[in-house]
Design a protein around this nucleic acid. Structure first.
Lengths: 229, 229
DNA sequence: CGGCATCCGGGAAGATACTG
DNA sequence: CAGTATCTTCCCGGATGCCG
């Protein structure tokens, strides 16, 4: 039997630096930490759902990150009311305020020559990327409600007044429904793959107003890769 | 004699994730990487100067980070022309584009209850923090050129038209000169310490127009800590 | 099934010493 | 000054197993 030192100094490896950026890295600089927060950006999730959307993370590390983020005040564990009872992890208000960080990182790295968009992507990731890459100019005069069914998770995007609002869950009066995998949706929006080809390949089913669906896929221009133009 | 495997896959630990945020962490998610970039945000530096401003980093790790960032296309090594000859590290254009990330991280983490502003801070950090926290409203109608001499490094801040421009180096027609340590300057701007007290303590010398100096210190309001109002 | 503790192997980070 | 070499420590990732 071994008893962990009671005086166990937390032994956290910190940057002893008053700079806010350095402190941010103390909070979310550990491996996986920011991706865990990304997965929670669109609403609370349970342990195994986070884990499933972060291929490569071990249960071990996920437990540590959740505990660390909770101790920092960035997320809370919450028991769902009956009849669900399940325990979920939910960002605090301050945690949600990290969204600009996630988005600016994503926008910046999209210019990387080494970025490989064919890798797997989670549902939360691509919905967040829409918030990041949305071009208000291109959306002028466009009004639509788009429903996404991505492997068990549903999201609704509402576009009006050149603004985009994305929420978790289904919705009424939907103009377009996309059903399929996040990667196929990414192919349509970012890879320039035609919707009918994806439909024919049974990768992404498009239902509803196809003109609106086509227009939707044009609203998220990628920044130019470095070294180009 | 040992021969490293030629087929040695770089063995970089990557997130296999198409999400831009995840790719950003592949690029700058390693420990110290973003702080190295922060130190270069205001202009090129040489190895030992970066090292001196990042207390805690070992030469070993700094070498690795510089090599990694160079391989990713985020910085370049450059030989200064005669008579300096020294080798310096300089961010590429794309590297400089990471400034919004550094700033949004800093602004977000400034709300943390665990943030300790009494820790040491580098000259680059505090000059960058001015860019981050600058409040254009408060600067309306204020015009000033402020020179900072912070332990061997000089920076100039120009405020006009409710805009702030910070550059490395000295300048002509200066209204105010601050001379001292970065931490003392932080005390004045963020800690509410009176300039004359800092001057009396020989921590920060203020020369020139003291009214302008006082006003300058009010232009950088900190966001409220979480849990407060 | 969901959440967490434990053990282990490999590799990254930290500290120090050394070299051109 | 600008790194390299070496050694130690600790974190990450994987597997297993406990417990509600």
């Amino acid at each position: 039997m071994k008893l962990g030192k009671l005086t166990d100094s937390p032994k956290v490896r910190r940057y002893d630096d008053a700079c806010g950026t350095a402190h941010a890295l103390d909070l979310i600089g550990e491996r996986w930490a920011l991706l865990v927060m990304r997965e929670l950006m669109l609403g609370p999730k349970r342990f195994n759902d986070i884990r499933a959307d972060l291929p490569g993370i071990s249960a071990n590390v996920l437990t540590q990150r959740l505990a660390g983020l909770e101790a920092s005040g960035l997320l809370q564990r919450r028991k769902l009311p009956p009849p669900a009872y399940a325990q979920v992890y939910e960002l605090t208000d301050w945690g949600y305020e990290a969204e600009p960080i996630v988005c600016s990182l994503g926008r910046w790295a999209a210019r990387s020559p080494a970025h490989d968009p064919t890798l797997p992507i989670s549902a939360s990731s691509i919905m967040l990327s829409f918030r990041t890459m949305f071009d208000a100019q291109r959306a002028k005069g466009f009004e639509a409600v788009i429903l996404f069914r991505l492997g068990g998770e549903s999201f609704t995007a509402r576009i009006a007044d050149a603004r985009l609002v994305i929420t978790r869950g289904e919705s009424e009066s939907v103009n377009v429904t996309f059903t399929g995998s996040p990667i196929a949706l990414a192919g349509a929006v970012y890879g320039g793959q035609p919707l009918d080809a994806l439909d024919a390949a049974h990768a992404l089913k498009t239902e509803g107003d196809h003109a609106m669906a086509e227009r939707f896929t044009t609203l998220f221009p990628l920044p130019p890769k470095v070294g180009q133009s």
